[in-house]
């Protein structure tokens, strides 16, 4: 019984980690209509930003979340024009070009990080690391609780932005039909640029949290690219509220499979369930994303 509850908690908290990576990614996909294969590398660079700031300033890495956000918003704003050039260019196969661009960017960033910082694993500790909250025999790692609530908080903030603000309405309009939105007087290029910057900022912050929970290495990105893609598909591509559910579902599947079936099968079962869910609901679990 204790183990069951503990596994439930573990799963939800793993889901919290996924939530913070995927939120911005799914939003960016919704608006730009392209997969950014560099998502894992933004996580990695976010992790290193937190690590180096922590290393040189000695303050708790979580205190650097706002700085990291700002830095990556700027980075995103600088990268976006290159993406936009490809997206709006006159070439054929523009989506393929974007794919190649983000894939190349990912390789470049990973290679650059490897050259600059080497292959070593680096760990950084927060005040909340190596502490847990015990409740009726169930242990909740404090740092993961922090990450989880942070994830929920930014999900609520992003949802509020999308459903309660003028900018959010234009974001949703652009995501659904860029052409129509433009005829309504929406500056679609500006919306896309801001969304990409926001996505980069959120993903950079995710990197700091992931770096504190696990470790930071130049090669950590790949698996998060896969998970982000996976959850975005499960959530319904471009449908932000689905992300919360999909992230939790993935976390729970992983935790329960590891404990009750065998961890070796977890990826297999995760992909099998994705396949089955998409068979039933091709637009994601809530059937609201892009087909």
């Amino acid at each position: 019984m204790d183990l069951l509850l503990q596994t439930l908690v573990n799963g939800i908290l793993i889901g919290g980690v996924y939530l913070i990576i995927t939120l911005g990614f799914n939003l960016a996909f919704g608006v730009l209509g392209v997969i950014d294969f560099a998502v894992g590398e933004w996580v990695m660079l976010g992790g290193f930003t937190g690590y180096w700031l922590n290393h040189y300033l000695g303050l708790d890495p979580l205190l650097f979340l706002p700085v990291t956000f700002v830095v990556f918003v700027i980075v995103g704003a600088l990268v976006y024009p290159m993406l936009a050039r490809l997206l709006k260019g006159r070439q054929h196969a523009r989506l393929l070009m974007v794919f190649v661009f983000t894939f190349g960017l990912s390789t470049l960033l990973k290679g650059g990080a490897l050259t600059a910082w080497g292959f070593n694993q680096r760990a950084m500790d927060s005040f909340f690391s190596a502490r847990s909250v015990e409740l009726a025999g169930v242990y909740m790692p404090q740092i993961r609780l922090v990450a989880f609530f942070f994830g929920v908080l930014i999900t609520v903030a992003v949802a509020w932005m999308l459903y309660r603000t003028r900018f959010g309405l234009s974001v949703r309009a652009v995501a659904q039909d860029e052409g129509k939105a433009r005829l309504m007087g929406v500056n679609t290029n500006r919306v896309a640029a801001l969304v990409y910057a926001l996505y980069a900022g959120l993903t950079g912050m995710a990197g700091v949290l992931i770096g504190v929970i696990y470790t930071v290495t130049p090669q950590m990105g790949v698996q998060y690219t896969i998970f982000a893609f996976f959850i975005a598909v499960l959530a319904g591509l471009g449908y932000v509220p689905g992300v919360l559910l999909a992230a939790l579902l993935l976390g729970l599947i992983q935790a329960f499979v590891a404990v009750y079936i065998g961890s070796a099968y977890s990826l297999l079962i995760v992909f099998l369930s994705l396949y089955l869910i998409l068979l039933v609901a091709p637009r994601g679990i809530l059937n609201r994303g892009r087909a």
């Binding site: 003028r166 309405l169 234009s170 949703r172 309009a173 659904q176 039909d177 052409g179 129509k180 939105a181 005829l183 309504m184 007087g185 929406v186 609201r288």
Partner: peptide, 26 residues
């Protein structure tokens, strides 16, 4: 301008559709 097939966004409510129609009204 109204594009071909109208300018209704399928996933927005009527209210939101009108508000996006008035996007330029700050």
């Amino acid at each position: 301008t109204m594009p071909q097939g109208g300018s209704v966004f399928a996933d927005l409510s009527v209210d939101e559709n009108l508000r996006i129609g008035g996007h330029t009204i700050r």
